[in-house]
Design a protein around this nucleic acid. Structure first.
Lengths: 211, 211
DNA sequence: CTGAAAGTACCTAAAATCAGGTAATTTGAA
DNA sequence: TTCAAATTACCTGATTTTAGGTACTTTCAG
C-alpha cells in the first residue's frame, strides 16, 4: 500500500486559478487537490475539512475577507495548514494573516515550483513566503508594523465618504451630523491608522482592501 | 485537411493563470494557446505575433500598464483581437481598454464557459464583456466617464508621493523643488483628474492601478 | 443595572490645501 | 532649428484640514 497523498483544498473565487492549481498538482504523486471552494460559505459547509492537510486561501475574495476566514478556519481546524495567496501584497496584510494562524503567504505570480516548495515546507512546520513576498517582508519599516485598526460603524461610513473625496462639510450634510462631530470622527480615523493626512488614510485603506 | 485552430496568445504575469488557460483550451478542437508571455517585453520580442488571432491581456501587470500595451499592440497588429482581463475592475479602466482597441473585457473570476463564450464572440467582431464586467458597465454614472489623464514624468513622481501621504513641503524637499512649484504640479494633477482634493485623487489613482 | 465604548458636539489656533492668476526657462520631438 | 509642452517659480486670499483639548448622551454587552 502506498502513502496517502497530501490533501489540498483551495478557496479562491477565480475558477482559472483553481484549475491552474489542479493542473499543477494533477501530475504529482505526493499531492492532490481534494476540494475547491469559490466562497467562504462553501468552505464552511464542507463536511470533510478535517481530512484536508493544506488550505490555499485567496485573501481578496469578492464577498469575504480572507484574514477573517483564516482566523475562523484555524479556530475550527487548528491542525490545518493555511497558506495565504493574493495578486498584490501589502506587508500589513501578510502579517495579519500570519498573526491569524497562516503558515505562509504566496503571490499568485509566483512560479509553479514556488507553490510546491512553499507547500512542502509549510507541511514541515515552517512559515514560508514566496520570493516576492519575502522581499516585502524584508522591508522592515517601523511604519509598516501598522496593523489594520478596528473601526466602528460610523468610522467606516466616514472613511468610505473620505475615500470618495468628500469634505468634512459634505460628509456632515450627508450623514446629518454636526460639522464638529465629523471632524472628531475624522481625527479619530487619522489617529487609529497612525497617518498624517487623509491622502495617506485613503491610500492605506484601499491598499488593504477596506473598501 | 482540417480547419486550422484559432491561435491564442496570453500576456499575464501569473503563471497559474497561464496554466489554467492552457488547460482550459487544451481539450478544445477549435482553439489553441500558441504563446504566452509574462511581460510586455517578451510579447513585443515575439516574432510570430502576426499569426496570432486573439490576445488575452492582463491589465494589471507588475511592470507594465495593460492599457498602454493594448494601444501599442493594436497599432502594430490592427487585426489582432485583444481582450482585457483583470481581477477587479473599474469602469474607467474597461472603457480605456475599449478606447484603445480592445474587443472586450473579462474578469478573471469569470467562469470557464465565459472565457470561451467571450473569445468566440469577439472573433465574430462583437465587443464582449463577462457578466460581472457588464454589471459595472451598466452603471452609467456620468462621473465615471472620466478617462485616465496623461501625466508627465514629474506629475507621476508627485502623484506617487501624494499617495504616500507626503505634504507639499515634504515633496518639495524630496524632489529639490520650490514649495510653490510643487503646489503648481499638485494643482495641475487635481485639474487633470477633475477631482476636488488629494483624497479623491489618491482614490482614483489607486483604483485605476496607477501605482 | 452598570460601565465601557461609541457617538455626539463644542472651542481654538496653527498649518496646509485649494483656487485663481502670471511668467521665465528648459526640454524634446517634429 | 523651432515651437509646443513641460518644468519651474511666484503672488494672494479663501477655505479646509489638522491637532490639541473637553464633555455630554446613547448604546450595548456582561
Amino acid at each position: 500500500m502506498s502513502t496517502p497523498k497530501t490533501k489540498i483544498a483551495i478557496l479562491d473565487d477565480h475558477p482559472l486559478i483553481i484549475e491552474g492549481l489542479k493542473l499543477l498538482f494533477s501530475a504529482s504523486s505526493t499531492y492532490e487537490v481534494s476540494a475547491s471552494f469559490k466562497s467562504a460559505e462553501e468552505l464552511f459547509a464542507y463536511e470533510n475539512m478535517n481530512h484536508i492537510d493544506v488550505l490555499l486561501l485567496d485573501v481578496f475574495l469578492t464577498h469575504d475577507n480572507g484574514i477573517d476566514v483564516c482566523l475562523k478556519v484555524k479556530k475550527l481546524h487548528p491542525k490545518l495548514i493555511v497558506l495565504g495567496m493574493s495578486s498584490q501584497s501589502e506587508r500589513s496584510i501578510v502579517m495579519q494573516m500570519i498573526k491569524n494562524g497562516a503558515s505562509g503567504y504566496l503571490l499568485k505570480s509566483a512560479g509553479l515550483e514556488e507553490f510546491v516548495y512553499c507547500i512542502s515546507h509549510a507541511l514541515n512546520g515552517s512559515v514560508v513566503f514566496s520570493k516576492e513576498v519575502q522581499k516585502i517582508i524584508d522591508k522592515v519599516q517601523l511604519s509598516d508594523l501598522k496593523s489594520i485598526p478596528r473601526l466602528t460603524r460610523r468610522e467606516k461610513e466616514i472613511l468610505k465618504l473620505l475615500i470618495e473625496g468628500k469634505s468634512t462639510q459634505q460628509i456632515s450634510d450627508e450623514l446629518f451630523l454636526s460639522y464638529l462631530t465629523t471632524q472628531t470622527h475624522r481625527r479619530n480615523l487619522l489617529y487609529k491608522f497612525q497617518v498624517k493626512n487623509v491622502a495617506e488614510l485613503v491610500s492605506f485603506a484601499l491598499k488593504n482592501g477596506l473598501l
